[in-house]
């Protein structure tokens, strides 16, 4: 389970996050939806202990990230698929992760296969990867330690339609086996087909949360999303 409690983050005069609270239950996929710059990445980075909140807190399995002894076993994260050393091979990226987690090298092969990277692709330098391949690599890296929670920031970016279809199936399976999955996107249709629950944010504020059916209210999820984000923009204009 992942929990955000009254999370706020200020950068000098900008409120990146303003009193955001929501929960990602175990065994579910929660879609974190909002326009670019809404605060999704900020919230995820605070959760992963990479950024400090101004107030409030974020916890994984009831504990702050910094309190996890070996976080790779508890929560898998993909915060930016492009943040890789271009001269390192995909296999090597996974090998370094496996070493840090104390996992056998066979886990690297398993993960490469799981995310659909061939042995040849794994040996290539990441600098030559397409964004879709980097996303697959990043998802594989997040899954190395078989974590009980998964945090993915815009994992569908750069994936082709087959890739998106594959990812949906993977996340569904993980959630069904008890994993708490949080994935962010700025594209509604990427989220609504896989998410059990949707959390909408705009301008750093929580706009709405619920199941896709609840949020759609008969007029469609897209209409709700557009109206809420437009209202958030107006209130700050």
């Amino acid at each position: 389970m992942i929990e955000f409690q009254r999370l706020s983050k200020r950068y000098s005069d900008v409120k990146a996050l303003d009193d955001v609270s929501f929960t990602v239950p175990a065994g579910s996929v929660t879609g974190f939806l909002g326009p670019n710059g809404a605060g999704k990445s900020t919230a995820m980075r605070i959760l992963a202990g990479l950024s400090r909140p101004t107030s409030g807190s974020a916890t994984v399995l009831g504990r702050p990230y910094a309190g996890l002894e070996r976080p790779g076993y508890e929560v898998g994260t993909l915060l930016d698929a492009s943040a890789q050393h271009p001269g390192r091979s995909g296999r090597e990226v996974l090998t370094l992760g496996a070493m840090m987690l104390g996992l056998p090298r066979s886990r690297v092969d398993d993960v490469l296969e799981l995310v659909g990277l061939t042995g040849k692709e794994g040996r290539r330098a990441v600098g030559g990867y397409s964004l879709g391949m980097r996303q697959r690599l990043g998802i594989g890296h997040a899954l190395l330690g078989r974590p009980r929670a998964l945090v993915l920031d815009e994992p569908a970016n750069g994936l082709d339609p087959q890739g998106i279809h594959w990812m949906r199936g993977l996340l569904r399976d993980l959630a069904d086996s008890g994993c708490a999955v949080l994935l962010s996107s700025h594209l509604l249709h990427e989220v609504e087909q896989v998410a059990d629950r949707i959390v909408m944010i705009g301008r750093g504020r929580l706009l709405a949360q619920g199941t896709p059916a609840e949020l759609g209210q008969g007029r469609g999820l897209e209409q709700t999303f557009l109206e809420l984000t437009a209202a958030a923009d107006r209130s700050l204009a």
């Binding site: 990479l50 976080p71 790779g72 915060l79 930016d80 943040a83 890789q84 050393h85 840090m100």
Partner: peptide, 10 residues
């Protein structure tokens, strides 16, 4: 290379 994102997360 911004790999701090993965290193400091592990």
């Amino acid at each position: 290379h911004r790999t701090a994102l993965t290193t400091f997360t592990l």
